[in-house]
Simulated scan of single mutants.
Amino acid sequence: MKRYCLALDLKEDEGLIAEYEAHHEKVWPEVLKSICESGVIDMEIYRIQNRLFMIMETDDDFSFEQKELLDASNLKVQEWEKLMWKYQQTIPGSKPGEKWRLMTRIFDFKAAL
């Protein structure tokens, strides 16, 4: 199993943030199915102010490139992504259109013991 941590910002608008959270209370079944089919075992998203933090656990065969290909061929996932972009904005330093940014682990408690 692999673990990835990613970050993304929401637009700084309380109404939009509330809508974004409401969408995540009932994620479309097609999107959930696509996430599972890509090799994601578990996923959680946390928020502080307008910053989002995602923890994603995957099987050993997972790759972001493969997930991107699967997402690109799924019209419902593309519809979801377009809707989510209404609420999201890139983190400073992102490439144009780049959404979730992979974070670098800088501390591992178990390894430090």
Rank of each mutant, 00 (worst) to 15 (best):
M84C: 06
M54R: 06
Y4Q: 08
M54N: 09
K95T: 04
Q78L: 12
D61S: 11
E44Y: 12
M84G: 07
E79F: 00
T104A: 06
M43E: 07
E14Q: 11
R51T: 13
I91H: 01
M43N: 01
K82A: 15
E44I: 06
M84D: 07
D13G: 03
L69E: 07
I35F: 15
D42W: 11
K2N: 13
K67C: 07
E98F: 12
Q49K: 11
R3F: 06
A18T: 08
S34H: 15
D42I: 03
R101K: 10
G97R: 12
Y46H: 10
N74Y: 08
F109D: 12
K82V: 14
E37I: 03
E12P: 06
H23N: 00
S94C: 13
F107D: 05
V40K: 06
K95A: 14
I35L: 12
E79G: 09
D61Q: 08
P92H: 15
R3G: 01
T104R: 11
K67Q: 11
R3P: 02
L102S: 05
L69V: 12
F107T: 08
S94I: 02
A18N: 02
I35R: 05
M84Q: 08
E68R: 11
C5V: 11
Q78A: 12
L6V: 09
G15I: 02
I41G: 00
E30H: 13
F62I: 09
D60A: 14
K2T: 09
L83E: 14
S34F: 05
E37H: 10
K95F: 14
L52G: 03
K86E: 11
D108E: 15
L113N: 12
K86C: 04
D42P: 01
A18H: 08
K76R: 10
E19P: 00
M43H: 10
E98G: 03
K33I: 01
S73Q: 12
R47W: 09
R105P: 06
K95P: 00
K95C: 04
A7P: 01
G97A: 14
G93P: 01
M1S: 12
S34D: 04
I45Q: 03
Q49H: 14
I17N: 04
V77Q: 05
A22V: 05
E57K: 13
I41Y: 07
K99H: 08
E98Q: 15
F64Y: 01
